[in-house]
Amino acid sequence: MKILIIEDEKALAESMATYLSAEQYFCEFAETFDDAMYKAETFHYDCILLDLMLPGGDGMKILEALKADNKEDGVIIISAKGALEDKIRGLQIGADDYLSKPFHLPELAARIHSLIRRKSFGNNNLFRQNELTIDLLAKTVTVNDAKVVLTKKEYELLLYFISNKNRVVSKTALAEHLSGDVAGILDNYDFLYAHIKNLKKKLTEAGADNYLKTIYGTGYKWQS
């Protein structure tokens, strides 16, 4: 999988690449508008992470050029402005997703995972790990061919974990994924513990191994 990171902040671009490389994503960088435009128009990427404010031009123009060329690359806008107008315009022009800074790297990984999955319908909608199978299209989970019924939130958590497998995901990232800012404002993660406990219980009772490890003090890690 090839990803183009269009971001003029080197430190941030490197963090993203480091985190994503664990998932066998191959990352390329573009720091200026011209460089980004050249790479986006010349090569094919599974996903382009697009910062809107670039030295030399407006990132939105790159998106417009991609759409004008009918290129199929998935695009996630990453913006510091957080302006709703940008989000709406970006999605209208044809971006697949929008993430405002600051964000958790696991959230980015989950968005990319979801985007690539959507883009490659048909051939890649099953996730398998030993006895566990997730049908990403039908949104069903089976363990040893027996169906496990999960709530919406438990399923969302499971997807989040498998898109960040073998990496530690903090509970704040998880809580924000499930309920946005509210979790932090209320400073209460009990609901998260409850959902994770239920998810673990349902999977192990169905006969799956315990892949979800609790990392003391920081969060959780899905092992594959």
Binding site: E9, L12, Y19, S100, P102, F103, V168, T218
Partner: peptide, 21 residues
Amino acid sequence: QTPLAIIQSKLDLLMQSELSS
């Protein structure tokens, strides 16, 4: 927003290493 994003990303990476309690 951008510096905050950098700090957040570095923390997310730091979490991946072997850490003492």
